[in-house]
Computed example of a mutant assay.
Amino acid sequence: MGHGLLWLPLLAMFIVLARLGWHEYRKIEAYREWAQGFERSKYDILAVLGQRETTLTWGTPTRSGPIGLKSLSLATIDGVEVQVDQTAIDIGDPPQRGKTITLVLTSQDQSSSYAIPFTEIPLAVEWCYFLREYIGQLAIK
């Protein structure tokens, strides 16, 4: 009986991990359905992000689909930068680590900025390169 009691915490931990895994799976499936209408998209535990033509949409992932969605026309954006721990970085030589990583979009009139959270610096840098190039192409047209 003593051996059975020793395995009980392990069983409880397995059940908790299985439940957490199921919740994360549901979030990813909800994201997949949401992301089908976008040309480019990203998912991580902090935010979902999608780009369709000149519109950028982002929000918070949940099991029932993204919530708190915000949309923005890329034609109104003038600046794009990556901030690590609230400090702008050189995207040509990004740091290896940071606690908070955000992609910051600044409007043309400098009156508003939008922060999109990321969990990985390389992914934020990749989106920064992409958005800078895309906004540059919009300015040429």
Rank of each mutant, 00 (worst) to 15 (best):
E126F: 02
K27T: 05
F118T: 02
A88N: 04
P9Y: 00
V104L: 13
T106M: 08
S112H: 15
L103D: 03
C128K: 01
F118M: 05
T54I: 06
F130K: 07
L56W: 05
T62I: 03
L5C: 01
W127D: 02
R63W: 01
P122I: 07
R32F: 06
R19V: 10
V48K: 02
W34P: 09
I67R: 14
G59D: 10
L5K: 11
S113F: 14
C128H: 01
I45N: 11
F130H: 13
Q137V: 09
H23P: 00
Q110S: 13
T100P: 06
Y31A: 01
F130D: 06
S107K: 11
I121W: 04
Y43C: 01
G59K: 05
D90Y: 02
V82D: 09
F130M: 04
A35Q: 03
P66T: 06
G21H: 09
L46V: 00
A75M: 12
V82E: 08
R63T: 12
G4H: 15
R132E: 14
E120L: 09
L10M: 09
F38T: 09
L123E: 15
R40A: 07
A139S: 13
T62L: 08
A115L: 04
Q51D: 02
L17W: 10
V16R: 14
D44P: 03
A12L: 15
D109T: 04
K27W: 02
T100Q: 15
I89F: 04
P117Q: 06
G21T: 07
Y25P: 00
E33L: 13
Q83S: 05
L20S: 08
L8P: 00
